[in-house]
Structure formats: structure tokens, C-alpha cells
Nucleic acid binder design. Structure first.
Lengths: 188, 188
DNA sequence: CTACTAAGTCGAGGCTACCTCGAATTGACC
DNA sequence: GGTCAATTCGAGGTAGCCTCGACTTAGTAG
């Protein structure tokens, strides 16, 4: 009776296949794609997929794993940059991240306040980085003091959502508009 | 053989029932709600629903009919207001409009450039009003000249989407952020 | 090498929803 | 009241979700 904490070799391999196919299918059809199609493409039965990932969100969460780590690392590294640059870079990074698959932004938006979601931890981590950068930018006086990290997170996610419905270039312009404002500032 | 261009009385009544129940169900469950449930609540067979509205979007479109008219009227009336006020009012109106049902914003975003959609006409009309107001605001110098009506439409829809995932108050703050900018403007 | 067992896999099957179509019904007009 | 086109009905085919018990197999120990 070997209580080896490690999954069986075939299980590990199957998990990888599932993740690979899920990535491909989600890229092509968005996060609402058929899970059965993913299992089929991986040459596995649907029950096997559900054995590895109990819900669609669990699958999504696992899929974002590596990518999240990279994002967090990049986010932490921004501590050395000037506040305005750091914030802008972070925003660009997260928008691209949240627009990985069509439909992902909605999951992230809900994940922020739905603690039961497997994506919640990632959302919290992202929020923390955003918070730090916002605070630093506010202290430096480069953003309006009334801007909260929570609001900015929502704006970022909204831009990611917009990116799903328009071209990346267009999404880039939208970020500019959001950051610099639509209205011309009043003369001081 | 009366080629009366008008539908039969029962058909008209059924159509009204379907619209009423659809409104209720969409309000409760969003635009992805079950169409069969709507038919059932209206006491009709699913085939009847499909007879009246060939697609979900057609139903959605019919549902927005009256509401759209009111919005367009209000939009046209804004011609008398000062440019900045007019634009801001229009934005508030459209965000609320686009957030009528959870999921509607996505349909509107796609409808703008999907000419085959039944929502397309409404989207075009809305875009036209936005265009007029943006132009007037730009001429008056209250918004950045680089702001296009298309981009602003997308921003509006994105705010409406955000409203589906947060409180109305929060959404209002987001609109403020978008219009006034996150960054503090450079000193002139 | 064999036998054992827990871990993993399979896929049929129950469910819900979508949408279509031919048969049955019924309102409108003569 | 008869006629017929408009309308309604709902069964049925398709697809996707998810579960569960039966089956298979990797990994270990003797």
C-alpha cells in the first residue's frame, strides 16, 4: 500500500494532454467551448476529464497556472520602475492576460468576489499587486487620489472584455482613453 | 382570401405574452436564459415561440424595441443641451440601457459590426447619435480630438458590461474614471 | 514473475436545452 | 356554417453537461 503522494504516471500524462487540448480549444472557441470536444481531442473519455477537473473553472484555473506565475513575477518586478510606467505596464500585461481566451474576462470579473471559485486565489493575488502599484502611483501624485485599486481592476477587466469584441489595436486605444480621459481636463 | 397585412388576433396576443415573459425571465436569468422556460411560462409550446422569433437575438431585438425608441428620442432631444452635458447624459442613458439584462452588452457589442444581426439597426442608430454628440463635443473642444465615436461606443458598452458584474454605483464611478481619466493630466 | 489493490479510466445514460417539422387546430372572412 | 391560410402544437433529433458503477492498469510487495 504505497501512499505515494504522487499521481500515477498515466494520470499525469493524461492531465497534460487535457491541458494542452483545452488550451487549443479555448483559444479557438472561447471558454464556453465543449468539454466533451476537449476530451475527445485528447483521446480520452469525458469521465476522465471530469476526474481531473471537476468544473470548467477548475480546468481554466489550472490552465492559467503557469501564465499566472509569470504575470505575478512580472508584476512584482515592476516595483523598480517609476510609478506611472509601472502602472501602465501592469495594466497592459493584465489586459492581455485577461484576454487570453474569449470569455475569460467574465470569469475573472466574477472570480474576484466569488470566494468559492478556483480562480479566486489568482484574482486576489492580482488585486494585491494592483493595489500596491495604485498606492505608489497615488503617493507620487500621478493618478487621481480618488482612484481605487478595485475600480481600476474592474476597468482593466472591462478593457480585456472589450478586447474580445474588437481588435487588439482598438483595445490599446481604449486603455489610453481610460487612463487619459475622454474629456479635456479643465484649465488649472 | 384576405391578404390583410395584419397577424391574427391570437397570434398578436401570444406575441405579447411571449415578450412579457421573456422580459421577466431575461431580467432574472440574463440573456442566456432558457427559451423553453419562456414559452412554458407563457403557456405556449416552444414551436410557437420559434414561430414568432426565429432566434434569441430576434426576441431580444423585439424586446428592446420600445425601449430603443425612447432612448433614441431622448438622444435626439439632447441636441439642445450644452455639448459636454449632452454627451455625459447620453452616456449615462446608454449604459443603463445596455445593462437592462445581464449579457445584453455582449450582444450589443457584436451587433455593431455584425450586419446580419437583428440588433444591427438599433446599434447603427445608437452609433449615429453618439457620432453626432461626439462631433459636437469635439468642435466645442470639451473632449480630446482623437476620441472617435466608435471608440466611445465601445467604452460605453464596456461600462455596461462592468455594470453587470458590479453595483450600479460602482459602474457610475467607472464612467467618471473613463471620462475624466485615471492619470492626473500634465500641467499646461 | 505473479498477485494484489488503489488509482485511474471508460462510456452509457439521465438530464436539459436547442431547434425543426408535419399534423392538428383555429381565427377570419365569405 | 364553410373554407383556407395562419398559427399552434409537441414529439423527436441533436448536442452538451455531468455522474456513476464496472472495468482496466500502474505500481508495489512478496
Amino acid at each position: 500500500m504505497p501512499p505515494s503522494g504522487r499521481p500515477r504516471a498515466d494520470a499525469r500524462a493524461n492531465r497534460e494532454r487535457l491541458l494542452a487540448e483545452a488550451d487549443a480549444v479555448f483559444r479557438e472557441h472561447g471558454t464556453d467551448a465543449s468539454l466533451e470536444a476537449i476530451a475527445k481531442r485528447a483521446g480520452l473519455a469525458t469521465g476522465t476529464l471530469y476526474g481531473h477537473f471537476r468544473t470548467r473553472r477548475a480546468l481554466l484555473s489550472a490552465l492559467m497556472g503557469d501564465r499566472n506565475e509569470a504575470l505575478f513575477t512580472a508584476g512584482d518586478a515592476l516595483a523598480d520602475e517609476p510609478p506611472a510606467v509601472a502602472l501602465r505596464t501592469w495594466i497592459d500585461l493584465t489586459v492581455v492576460h485577461a484576454a487570453t481566451y474569449r470569455g475569460l474576462a467574465a470569469h475573472l470579473a466574477d472570480g474576484t468576489d466569488d470566494a468559492s471559485s478556483e480562480l479566486h486565489a489568482s484574482c486576489v493575488r492580482m488585486a494585491a499587486i494592483t493595489h500596491t502599484l495604485v498606492r505608489r502611483a497615488a503617493d507620487a501624485g500621478v493618478i487621481r487620489p480618488s482612484t481605487t485599486a478595485a475600480d481600476l481592476s474592474m476597468l482593466i477587466t472591462a478593457c480585456a472584455w472589450a478586447r474580445e469584441h474588437a481588435s487588439p489595436e482598438r483595445a490599446g486605444r481604449l486603455i489610453d482613453q481610460v487612463l487619459n480621459g475622454v474629456f479635456v481636463p479643465p484649465h488649472s
